[in-house]
Design a protein around this nucleic acid. Structure first.
Lengths: 205, 205
DNA sequence: GTCTATAGCAGGATAGAC
DNA sequence: GTCTATCCTGCTATAGAC
């Protein structure tokens, strides 16, 4: 999952306080960069978030980031790869199933499961808020294609338009529990349970 | 609606072929800029669309654009202002109604009506695909607030989470008919009718 | 109304010291 | 692993001629 050619085991040589030494909470430098970058990508947008800004927030310089990631885009790639693999597995499973209501519901259940990871919700949020930018980012293209494939599994072109639309909204229901209702105050558990319930209903006959 | 202090009636003085003289199809220079800009903002993203690119596509230079719009952001503002006014009117109406199922359905109907204009769908598409960027653009802020207000009118905080989510999805249903299902081939009429049907059902009890 | 030219700045990325 | 310094590019916006 982690393809870091350069420094599989980076030498902890110098005595200066750097990104990698702030790991008193068990977070690697790589992870800290990912967290800060993702947060900024969501709040400010990918384009408007400069590497300088990320570095500043981490207390280092731009150049330091380039030791951990070859490009800005690579940060996004590292963020999304795990989720892409997880969704790909679900799609593989779904493609081998008969196209029944029960399959749709199980597909939704499994898809909703992918939102349980600590960063999953944020990654979706990032994706939704940066669609235009992310679409030629490779990682974004992959996620977009997967979303379309999920929707295509939920309905066929021969079905009425309103059915197609209704079923597709199930995906938005799952995603939306993370971003559409920011104003309101419910906890994660409840939100996800509600989203799953609504989504399941949307794909029912 | 059109706040152009500088050139309410621009003098058609010179003989050179410019933006304003290409109006053989009845489009003003202003309109042509808006159309091209909006299209690029959707396809490439607001940030990544430079004024040079817009100008090039119109066969003029960057500087020419600055005659018609004082800033890049002003183009967005000019694009969204009519819709913001239209939605504001609907919100004003809705706020004066009792919070019944019938009101919700009528609210959805009226909201769906705003998608009938030629550019409305594109503007929503622009908004959705550039959320992160557009959020500190003034125009974007206004639209975001309106969307939240519509959702708040569709459900109250005391209602169960799944009901709140379900009702909020009605808005996405209306919007989605314009962008979520690009892969599939149905005409506008059918798509909007389907969206309205789904949305109405989502706000029903 | 449109042009050329340019100011002024910020971005991503690299080189090389430590 | 992180730094300083810098290259190169592209952006928004402005000045002033025509």
């Amino acid at each position: 999952m982690s393809q870091d050619p350069a420094h599989a085991s980076a030498p902890r040589s110098r005595h200066r306080i750097g990104l990698d030494d702030q790991a008193t909470d068990g977070q690697s430098a790589r992870t800290r960069i990912q967290d800060v970058a993702l947060q900024l990508f969501i709040e400010e947008g990918y384009d408007k978030t400069s590497l300088r800004e990320i570095a500043e927030k981490l207390g280092v310089t731009k150049a330091a980031l380039y030791y951990h990631f070859p490009t800005k885009e690579a940060i996004v790639a590292s963020l999304t790869e795990d989720r892409v693999v997880a969704v790909a597995k679900i799609l593989e499973w779904a493609n081998a199933q008969p196209r029944t209501e029960q399959t749709r519901q199980e597909l939704i259940r499994r898809y909703a499961e992918t939102m349980r990871g600590p960063r999953s919700g944020q990654i979706i949020r990032f994706f939704e808020r940066n669609q235009a930018t992310v679409k030629d980012l490779g990682a974004g293209e992959a996620m977009r294609k997967q979303m379309v494939e999920v929707m295509n599994l939920l309905s066929t072109k021969t079905e009425p338009y309103d059915v197609q639309l209704r079923r597709s909204l199930a995906i938005f229901a799952i995603h939306a529990s993370w971003f559409a209702m920011r104003e309101r105050e419910w906890n994660e558990e409840e939100g996800q349970a509600a989203a799953l319930k609504v989504a399941i209903d949307l794909v029912a006959d």
